[in-house]
Design a protein around this nucleic acid. Structure first.
Lengths: 161, 161
DNA sequence: TTGGAATGTCAACAAGACTGACATAAAATC
DNA sequence: GATTTTATGTCAGTCTTGTTGACATTCCAA
């Protein structure tokens, strides 16, 4: 057995890292998924609610580049959310081609419910692992993103200060 | 602005952690996805190859609890992999109801190709972030899993020594 | 030996991703 | 002013991958 500083880049360690990502992501989505299933929504609806909440007034185009899906796919989700009164779509004032998206109070309520169960799990995990582990966690995740996604991620962070 | 040790559990920090998971997971799967798409396979095929590689001779039942899908869903994926000659299914010798799953040489080759691009990204991320960050990353991910998944994850690790 | 439990297969269906084609309205450009 | 580009929405069709239901086979225990 070699020392930790040499060992951490072996294929076996990398394989374990991949499996950790797989299982952790399942845990990460499990709690919101349960709520969504009871409302016959899916993860796509959650993601839309999440990013509209985080960037109110965002356009459809912004949202679909953030989510990395096609407009047809996003549109189906948005149509149900708007139809169910969770999202409001307002015609742009300066550019009337654009639709600006906002959560209604009902939309905010569901977003809060979903994000709260997800935050609860993250909070517990962060508390268990400790602050230094959390810093490392963040550093590795950021290094794992595509450069384009990292830019989006940082833009979202800056947008909220 | 408060100190890091207090700040790390605020809702904003947790929200950023959630977004980091979202974007990082997309990066994590992006490279294998490209190869899979060119073969008209999906992530489900990758996962099956990965876990059969890691536990040769595993049964269908084992595999579906590991993957967290229904047997019917897994069966469709296995059927194509078996039909394409990447996986071999052998009737159990002691219990003939069971099918034991193995990768053929072709299956091993594809698994290696997929896992290699994924490992390459992880390797780069781990190198960028440094060993302490990697340890923290692993600690947080493990804390994020459901207890049941964590047991499976640890069992897989032990199985490979 | 008979009936239940476990294992796996096939069929049909739904969610949600995709592409391609097309329509509309507004903005930008020539 | 005419044309092109941009932003969005919609329809139709396909694919992956999840679901449930029905069923066959095998094992085991009453």
């Amino acid at each position: 057995m070699q020392g930790e500083t040499l060992l951490y880049l072996t294929d076996e360690q990398l394989r374990q890292g991949a499996e950790a990502m797989f299982f952790a992501y399942r845990g990460f989505t499990a709690d919101p998924d349960r709520i969504l299933a009871s409302l016959s929504y899916g993860r796509a609806h959650h993601r839309a609610l999440h990013f509209i909440h985080g960037a109110p007034g965002t356009t459809v185009n912004n949202l679909l580049t953030t989510l990395g899906v096609t407009k047809q796919s996003l549109n189906r989700v948005l149509r149900t959310l708007i139809g169910d009164g969770l999202v409001e779509s307002r015609v742009g004032r300066v550019d009337k081609r654009e639709r600006h998206l906002y959560l209604t109070p009902e939309g905010e309520a569901l977003e809060r419910e979903l994000s709260e169960v997800q935050r609860a799990r993250l909070r517990a995990a962060f508390r268990d692992a400790g602050p230094e582990a959390v810093a490392g966690f963040r550093r590795v995740l950021e290094a794992m993103m595509d450069p384009e996604m990292r830019r989006q991620y940082e833009r979202l962070r800056e947008g909220r200060g």
